[in-house]
Amino acid sequence: MRGVAKACALAGVSVCALLGSSTTARAIGDNDSQAPSSSKGSGDRSGSTLTASATATHIKVTQIGGGASGRSAKPLAPVDPNWRPPACWYEPVAAPQGLKDAVDRLKKGGDLVPVTPTLSWGEELMVDHYEKGKAESGSGDGYTNYNLGKDGRFWRGVINKNRENDPESAVCERTLFWQNAGTLPDDKHAPTPDVLAAYAYGRINVPSTRVELKPAAKSTVNAPTWVWLDKGTFKEVRVRAELADAGVWAQTMAKPVALHLDPGTEEAKTLPASGNCGINDDGSIGTPYTKGDAGKTPPCGITYLRASNGQPYKLKASITWQISWEGSGGAKGDLPDGTFETAQDMTVQEIQAVNR
């Protein structure tokens, strides 16, 4: 990344500034009416001008199947604690005319032009490099008249807003560069389908439904507590992430595969012993308790061996979601499983009783 002092020295009488990643700045204008609208919270279009922060992205995210909304919508936590979505990537931000318009505004006293997520250039550097074709140290050869008439776009880095304070987000600092239409940068931070799939992972919302219990909240020692979820409660969730300007997309799928029970005490036995209750073919988990099931062993449940003695046990139920993806060009793969956990109070009494 070019430092502030070096950039200002190169600028001469020009003005330059380093913008913090959370600082809102006037970004590059874009006259291409085919450009996709930015996702919610990423920026605002007014005519041919895009006002955006360093975390603004043109990646459009759409939930196309399953999932939840409102208060019932909850994000997944990756099973692998070391896995994280991409901290930053490159994407197209301006057509040639859009870049020229931004510099023209700068010449009239407008805002500096962001050339990386954190660095903006003043008039002299912008004119020399993007209009007059002058090479700049660390930025490669210059461009003639903003590449007007050529088919392609200028690209720069974008920071994942969920990781903007992560040091890894500082690696996408290539100065605003040209990329021909229909091609992706030869860079490990290019927005390839796997990058979009990982980005979509963080936008998956699953329902926070509590498991059904019998007895509902009060059990007895050595009597099994039945646990189940009705069919259709959990369905496959599909989230699509698309960067239309780059011709890249990915669809990330989350499929519920198991319910894991943690009784909240070592003085208990789970059924099955692993605590993992599989998903039935109809989408249900376990079997609902019905009258006459007393004395039977539930396919999914818990038997408490000691009373809770006034302090309820915290029964934890976590759904495991298997994550896979497919994308443009026939790409596909898997991502770490995700989980969502809920907790319920369970009071266990000593009196032996039969469920009715």
Rank of each mutant, 00 (worst) to 15 (best):
W325E: 02
S284C: 12
G182F: 05
A73M: 06
R356F: 12
D166T: 08
G338P: 08
L106Y: 02
T265I: 05
S72L: 08
T51R: 12
L196C: 04
L119M: 15
G3H: 10
S53T: 14
S39M: 03
P36D: 09
S22F: 15
I64M: 14
N309F: 09
A73W: 03
G109H: 08
C8N: 09
R84F: 09
S308N: 04
I279V: 13
D128I: 02
A200D: 02
K132R: 15
C16A: 14
S53A: 11
A244Y: 02
G149N: 05
A197P: 03
A52Q: 12
A9N: 12
L76E: 07
A181Y: 00
Y143T: 05
A190V: 05
D101A: 14
M253C: 01
Y146C: 04
E267W: 07
D128V: 01
V221N: 03
K269D: 11
R163H: 08
R240Q: 11
L335A: 10
S42Q: 10
Y130Q: 04
A170C: 00
V15E: 15
Q179P: 03
T339F: 04
S69A: 11
C300P: 01
T287M: 05
N280M: 11
G333K: 00
L112Q: 03
T290N: 05
K107Q: 15
S274T: 15
S120I: 00
D111A: 15
R210W: 08
D111T: 10
T175G: 07
T339L: 14
P298S: 09
T62E: 12
A94Q: 08
G264N: 04
A217W: 06
A250R: 00
D166H: 10
Y289Q: 05
E173D: 14
W89G: 01
A217K: 14
K218Q: 13
A241Y: 01
A198F: 11
G47Q: 07
P193Q: 04
D282E: 13
N205P: 00
N222S: 14
H58I: 09
L305T: 13
Y289P: 00
I159H: 03
E168Q: 13
P86L: 06
A102H: 00
K291V: 12
A27N: 10
S139D: 05
K314D: 13
V239D: 04
I319A: 06
L19C: 11
Q63G: 10
D230F: 09
W325I: 07
D141I: 11
S318T: 09
G327M: 07
Y90F: 11
E350M: 14
I64A: 06
P117S: 10
T175H: 03
K255Y: 01
E266I: 04
N309I: 11
Y304H: 01
G329V: 07
A250F: 04
G202C: 11
G286H: 07
V227C: 05
H260C: 03
I28V: 15
K132Y: 10
D194I: 00
K60N: 12
G275H: 02
G149P: 03
A52M: 09
K108N: 04
A216S: 14
R105H: 08
T220F: 14
K296R: 13
D345K: 12
S72G: 07
V4K: 12
P114L: 08
L229A: 06
S169H: 03
A241D: 03
G329C: 09
R105Y: 06
G29V: 02
E173L: 03
T225R: 00
Y146N: 02
E350A: 10
E136D: 04
N160S: 10
G149K: 03
G70Y: 10
P336M: 08
A250M: 07
T209Q: 10
G110R: 09
